[in-house]
């Protein structure tokens, strides 16, 4: 008597597939309609929205800004996240679990609440500005709310915890014995980093970087709140166009551009992964 596992799969698959296909097809189709105002849409397939997106400088600037802040947030996430991931992966004591728990806690709490904390810290009378002015580093209050720097900080709050967890699994694939071997043969710790740790983790880090970049491109909440209504990344603009301007088709077009950029980066990431697997650069 053999269980028919393929039959068990069907109901779940149908539900997941229907939800995905229906929602994606409907919104992609609607992105070719024309907005007639007040939320009404035309019925004909036209390329007006896409034409506007790729000719209007405003939209192109938004896309470019989204790419820039995502890239910066990704870079900082790697720079700050990798050492933490390395440290946790190499700790032998129960501290490793405690430190991991700290990361998990921060990723589990909704970003809106964390933004409250950032608001309070960076307010004019907040702890950051009081300290920096008290030390004489700043003579005027400085804030991250409502500027590009703030958006990068917000994106990092979204990605750093996740980044550490992903990079942690990357570091775990590097056997500790390789580092010890390099040390026994006289490598300084700098040399161990330069010749062992970095080269061996590079493939995994590249794929992680693409994942983090993708998360940043699609991040809405932190970008919207720390942009303070003045900085528009693509996701922030989508919400505004749909909810405030009730232009569903233009919103759909923006969403389609975002979706396609993210999918392209994903394909690149999958391509790199398979190539690395073939060259046996990653141990999975």
């Amino acid at each position: 008597m053999k269980a028919r596992w393929d039959l068990i799969l069907i109901p779940s698959f149908v539900l997941s597939f229907m939800l995905m296909a229906a929602s994606q097809i409907i919104f992609l189709r609607a992105s070719f309609y024309k907005d007639l105002g007040l939320g009404r849409q035309g019925e004909d397939i036209v390329f007006t929205n896409y034409g506007r997106f790729f000719t209007d400088e405003f939209y192109l600037d938004v896309l470019w800004l989204t790419i820039q802040v995502s890239f910066l947030a990704m870079l900082f996430t790697l720079v700050f996240g990798f050492p933490v991931a390395y440290m946790i992966a190499r700790l032998r004591s129960r501290w490793a679990m405690i430190l991991l728990a700290g990361i998990v806690i921060s990723t589990f709490i909704t970003i809106v609440i964390k933004v409250f904390g950032i608001y309070i810290m960076f307010s004019a009378s907040g702890i950051v500005n009081q300290t920096l002015m008290g030390l004489g580093i700043l003579d005027r209050p400085w804030t991250v709310i409502g500027n590009d720097a703030g958006v990068v900080v917000g994106l990092m709050h979204f990605t750093l915890g996740f980044g550490v967890l992903v990079l942690y699994s990357v570091v775990q694939t590097i056997p500790r014995s390789l580092e010890e071997a390099a040390q026994i043969h006289g490598s300084s710790r700098w040399r161990v980093w330069a010749r062992v740790i970095v080269p061996l983790s590079l493939p995994g880090v590249t794929v992680s970087a693409l994942m983090i970049f993708n998360m940043c491109m699609g991040a809405f909440t932190s970008a919207a709140l720390l942009g303070g209504g003045r900085v528009f990344t693509l996701p922030v603009l989508i919400q505004r166009v749909v909810i405030m301007e009730v232009k569903y088709s233009m919103g759909g077009t923006l969403a389609a551009v975002l979706l396609i950029s993210v999918l392209l980066i994903n394909l690149l990431s999958i391509y790199l992964m398979t190539r690395m697997r073939k060259q046996r650069l990653v141990i999975t």
Partner: peptide, 13 residues
Amino acid sequence: QIPSIVTGVAFLQ
């Protein structure tokens, strides 16, 4: 893989 904001827009439509 789909950004949440895209899911939101798509489900609304």
